[in-house]
Design a protein around this nucleic acid. Structure first.
Lengths: 366, 366
DNA sequence: GTCGTTGCTGGTAGCGCTGTCAACGTTCCT
DNA sequence: AGGAACGTTGACAGCGCTACCAGCAACGAC
């Protein structure tokens, strides 16, 4: 049957080709690989497309080419600030590229992750970004069988499926504790919420550092499965204090908890850092402007997302990275909340005035 | 040409149909409208699909049916906490439905929004969620011409494209100022960052409330185009104080700024609320656990996202809501930071102990 | 008994695009 | 001059699914 025009009046590639005086396939090539066309035809197709306001039909393209231009992203939480930074990086990197992001939330469940993975892979994504290194065996098998590039983000481990970008949470935690030791703190508590694998590894790092110093005591560790929040930080710290009233420092698995601990200290009129030092994790923006300013471990979340997406897109287009595993490291950002017990810690005039001393390390695996 | 099997060995609908002993079209119907099949065939197709692990090819479906099962979402920022709550609601509502979310970031640019809208609409989304009511004329025209349901979120206004869900930022700001008046404050500053349309309307509400009371002074308003942050709150407050040292309250356009103001007060040893009251906007989680606890205007962001997506999905499936415009209102959550100047404000034992008095209002348009 | 009517099923014909391969003209080498 | 090599173009045949419409049986109303 002749089909000169769709009922909807939508512009198809054929219309563009006709106006440009070329065959549809040539017009098609213009959109996928303009360099393959002669300059004359290229400009003709280009102006024809612009004149008609042509927008390619992605469904048809996907069907015909047997692949999509979709990058699947699996993250465990939309609530957690950490992931919004990573996501922002991913979206920023995908912008301007031909790829679009398909986001799904595993809710910290590796079974849910497996289910979503199956769904994603059936649509032949151009690439995949998954969180962490703790997939189910089934997921792992699917990932390895997938014929698209894959990036694991948030942490690094010994056995990447394909590419990997992150840092060692274990080493980062050890560095934070080492910093507290240096400042003269000995009885250091650990406060953690929602013990996902990465928080667990931070705990492991804490435990090993404390054991190395002969200071570990299980009673110094307070954790819960509840999702993190500032309020929860206060509550967990309250528990910790009830149990061990004479601690001299608290290492918090994230910054929300640290802020909660700070507020709870203020409520109880405990001086920070004179009586208790506080160290957080992630270095969210507010840490630098709290009073006292709060020490934290800076992790390059935005950069992680952006680099992951960039690496992925490059790999999709055949440009594999020199190294498949990228350690983005971390920095302990020393601020007032963990100053030496001899304390130079009274309020500066402005947050901006407080210089940050940094300890930068690539995380070394072990 | 006979094509018995795809090279990739992928299961197609035809395979399922064959195993079930029905025609492909009957199998197709099973996935879209199972009730249309006889019980016998329905169960046959169901078990065949399960046995083969069939997953439909969305691209083929979209091409053949001329529509997708994608809900487009346009938001201005991924950084802002406010939107992550909304997004969480949207994702939660879409989960379990057949629809997937396609997210794009307009970066607070209505031109970018227009461009993205054009892209989205060309793919015939099942529905669209857009932020706010300030589209370009061109965008507005495209939205009105679109043949899919549309929900505008974050605020309500007089002239919905289709559906609308939000609250009046203007009224919310007026309510916050009214609360400060009640508590005896008179010289109330306004601190705002990134003056997007919604923040602008909060400012308008502040201005009108102050003018009504004969207390407006342009010098009380400090704003900037810079994106919001806790640190920025401190900086803007510093500017405000330099200009008007004797203010007795600050209304912050969002909670990050409010926290920054609180820290700056602490740095300067200004007592809150005895010397200066603070009111934020959005009621993020940390507001209830700060010391002193911080008054804020609660907005139902998660609910907004969830309801918007639910309404949209219902509309896509032909179930239009009774009312197209939904006002989710707001609540002024009164906490210590804005207690009456006579002040009952010294630290409670715990944040949990601080009762919240609420003023709940649907926003009335004007 | 005839004629709708309803409920279920299947055949046909694409949806808009691209993979493959063949064909063409041009250039460059020997 | 002959031929290979390259760059550019087009014809054809689907990608996997669904819209559309026709067909058929079962049933009730007249």
């Amino acid at each position: 049957m002749g089909r000169k025009r769709t009922k909807s009046g939508k512009i198809r590639l054929a219309e563009v080709a006709e106006l440009a005086g070329v065959s549809p396939i040539t017009a098609s090539r213009f959109f996928r690989n303009p360099e393959a066309l002669s300059v004359a035809k290229r400009t003709r197709v280009e102006s024809a497309a612009k004149e008609l306001g042509y927008v390619p039909n992605l469904a048809a393209r996907a069907l015909a080419s047997q692949r999509t231009e979709v990058i699947g992203v699996l993250i465990p939480s939309l609530t957690n600030n950490v992931f919004s930074d990573v996501l922002r990086g991913i979206y920023d990197a995908s912008e301007g590229s031909r790829y679009s992001i398909q986001l799904s939330n595993t809710r910290y469940s590796i079974l849910q992750e497996e289910k979503l993975l199956r769904l994603f892979l059936a649509q032949k994504p151009a690439g995949l970004i998954v969180t962490g290194i703790d997939q189910t065996a089934e997921s792992r098998a699917m990932l390895e069988a997938a014929d698209c590039p894959i990036v694991q983000i948030m942490e690094i481990g010994p056995d990447p499926v394909d590419m990997m970008i992150g840092f060692s949470h274990y080493d980062a935690a050890r560095a934070a504790i080492a910093h507290l030791f240096e400042q003269g703190h000995r009885k250091i508590g650990f406060v953690g919420a929602r013990m996902d694998p990465r928080v667990q590894r931070r705990l492991d790092g804490y435990v090993s550092a404390m054991k190395d110093a002969g200071l570990f005591d299980q009673r110094l560790v307070v954790t819960t499965a509840t999702p993190t929040s500032v309020t929860l930080g206060g509550a967990l710290f309250t528990d910790l204090l009830a149990r061990e009233p004479d601690i001299d420092a608290v290492f918090c698995a994230n910054d929300d908890l640290a802020l909660g601990v700070l507020f709870e200290c203020r409520r109880r009129e405990i001086e920070v850092p004179e009586q208790i030092a506080i160290v957080g994790f992630n270095d969210l923006e507010f840490m630098a402007s709290a009073v006292p300013t709060l020490t934290s471990v800076r992790t390059n979340r935005y950069e992680m997302g952006k680099t992951a997406a960039t690496m992925l897109i490059n790999a999709i287009e055949g440009r594999r990275p020199e190294q498949a595993v990228l350690d983005l490291g971390f920095k302990v950002i020393e601020r007032q909340s963990s100053s030496a017990r001899r304390a130079d810690s009274r309020p500066a005039t402005s947050a901006a005035g407080a210089a940050n001393k940094m300890i930068a390390l690539p995380s070394s695996h072990d």
